[in-house]
């Protein structure tokens, strides 16, 4: 699992400064990766199942509403990286923002990909985003 997240996050090169590599690989990458997946799934459950299946809210199923959820997911993904890195006492470096940006990108990607599965479980939003 560590190896998977390492491969996922080191597409932009290995962490900077290099003295902090072990902490990123051992702690930060798995943390932000798992949080990213978890929050993405939670938001999808909220959008497709809670709002558009069980509650049958009729006014929150359009692609624009889906985009709002996606944006929310992206922002959360960006912020959790900063929070996680802050909590680990590593030497500060602008790399953190690149990592946050990458995580936000992955959040958008995951959200889109999982949407293709989750929309089949929904009633009101079964054709969102398309």
């Amino acid at each position: 699992m560590k190896g998977f997240f390492r491969a996922l996050y080191e597409v932009i090169g290995s962490p900077q400064p290099s003295s902090e590599v072990p902490v990123y690989r051992e702690v930060i990458f798995p943390n932000i990766g798992l949080l990213n997946l978890g929050i993405t799934l939670a938001l999808l459950v909220l959008f497709y199942l809670v709002i558009n299946r069980w509650m049958r809210v009729a006014t929150f199923s359009r692609p624009s509403h889906w985009a709002i959820m996606l944006l929310l997911n992206v922002i959360i993904a960006f912020v959790i990286v900063l929070a996680q890195v802050n909590g680990q006492n590593v030497v500060s470096h602008s790399y953190v923002y690149w990592l946050a940006l990458l995580n936000a990108l992955y959040a958008a990607l995951f959200f889109f990909l999982f949407s293709l599965i989750f929309r089949k479980l929904s009633v009101n939003a079964s054709t969102t985003p398309f």
Binding site: S19, P22, V23, E26, N89, V91
Partner: peptide
Amino acid sequence: LSRYGRKGSWFVADAGKQAGA
């Protein structure tokens, strides 16, 4: 020492989870 007097790109591979170990 992972942070003291360092130069170049390397890291302490057996430092574990503690930052700066």
